[in-house]
Design a protein around this nucleic acid. Structure first.
Lengths: 103, 103
DNA sequence: TTTACAATATCGCATATCCGATAAAAAATA
DNA sequence: TATTTTTTATCGGATATGCGATATTGTAAA
């Protein structure tokens, strides 16, 4: 075991959540994720995730020329995020207390 | 993509959390996880996880008569859970609001 | 004791996740 | 425009995660 509870997985979920609040580029996402997780996802991690989310119609590019490509949620993506959030809350409902204590 | 955000991973974390509240057997854990996630982990999933956690000294058996083994956290396991919980809160700190709204 | 059942254990397989290296493209700067 | 830097894209490989099938073990019931 590499490390118990290294919080793998959930990267798509985190990305959807971050984008839902503010349109972001791959690079910005990487930086925000580094802030939270401590480690920055490698380019080989983040871009394939964005590609997959894109291909599945959950996010879409907004690119005005001269600027870095950013992503925003689609309608489908919003639905997906809502579903995932509900699931998350069901699974971790008792983390509420932890958050209350720690944040 | 199987499904975006299917909440894979985190099984060890969930197990540690559940056991931290109440000593449980593999079977009980499966049932509680089914309640939360909707799907029950297969025996081929849950028992290897318990074995790994055990071998790493995070949990230990309390065997009261019978074949039903229950597990409890060790001191090392408590530390590990604390570390993981802090990390979790850092990554998902803004889920606090969601919990507030939904639970 | 024999049978039936429930809980646990293990195996092989499929897929997902993530990384590092490398390349390409775009933007910024000179 | 030419050059450098930043950002994005892709590929191969390593490891993790989880499933289903099967076997084992222990318990209770017949």
């Amino acid at each position: 075991m590499r490390e118990c509870c290294d919080m793998r997985g959930f990267l798509s979920f985190i990305v959807l959540r971050l984008i839902s609040k503010k349109s972001m580029s791959g690079h910005e996402l990487s930086q925000e994720i580094k802030k939270r997780k401590g480690s920055k996802p490698s380019p080989g991690t983040i871009y394939p995730v964005l590609k997959a989310l894109s291909e599945n119609g959950f996010i879409e590019e907004i690119k005005d020329k001269g600027k870095i490509k950013k992503y925003r949620l689609t309608k489908k993506g919003k639905k997906e995020l809502e579903i995932a959030t509900v699931k998350f809350c069901q699974i971790f409902y008792d983390m509420k207390d932890e958050f209350g204590r720690r944040c």
